[in-house]
Amino acid sequence: MIGLLQNLVDAASLGSLYALAALGVGLLFGILRLVNFAHGDFISIGAYALIVPSFEVTAQLFIGTWSWWLMIPTITLIVVIVALISDALVFRPLRRASAPTLMIASFAVSYVIQTGILLVYGARPKAANLWAGLDTPLMVGDVRVPLLQVITIVATLVLMAALTLFLKRTRYGTMMRAAAEDFRMAQYLGVRGDFVIGLAFAISGVLATAVSLLYLSQTGTLSPTMGVPLALFAFVATVIGGMGSLLGAVVGGFVVGVVVIMLQAYLPADLRAFRDAFAFTFVILILLVRPSGIIRTRALVERV
């Protein structure tokens, strides 16, 4: 029983990271029909921006040593700028391109960012110790909950609530929902397409930053491809959640988190190495039952 609760906490914390990553991917898909493979690399940028550029194996924190109230906005700003630059340089010239073309362009962006990191920081994985104090466990009954996991889950809930309020209660949020549903019609009503898309990139940058910081403080390792598995699981989450629905992205993120953690915990030891293969098999099963995902909609935000 304790073991199960422990696993559920782990699943909620990992699921939070996937849900945040999936929200960033889902938002861009909702507005632009872009499957953004570079989202994982936005996450990597957020982590690498914390450290001093060098080829050393042990990363020396630079911005990472600042207090959180200065560090978080600075890193967010850096990632948002990278996201906006990718839009301006790559995706804006492709506004009339098909969805597959956009996706291939995002592979190119991903490759460029990874190569950039490689040139500045070297190819080897690095150890970095961000927010070392946060791994002290809280005991809830007999369940040991690392403070960091609590922060991860709370931060995710706060970001999700903030995004929902933004989309439902503000004029820019309303523009985004309108554009996600019928982009051309929104333009006919004077909504500037490039502005709405830029906003979506900026928000996906904010969400990526949150994943960068939380993920790095959990794993303590940086590598030029660190964002790739996160992006992959985020896509899986958006696909099983239902492409185009943000609620779907979140649900999908948590489902993937639960599946991965439960497989990790309950697979026989000699099969654990194939955990992800089992996870993807499970995903295929979900899609066989519900081919358009768990939440089927054209709405960014569902009404409740």
Partner: peptide, 11 residues
């Protein structure tokens, strides 16, 4: 081309 998930007021 009504925005189906937006309310009448939001439309």
């Amino acid at each position: 081309h009504v925005f189906g998930t937006l309310t009448v007021a939001e439309n």
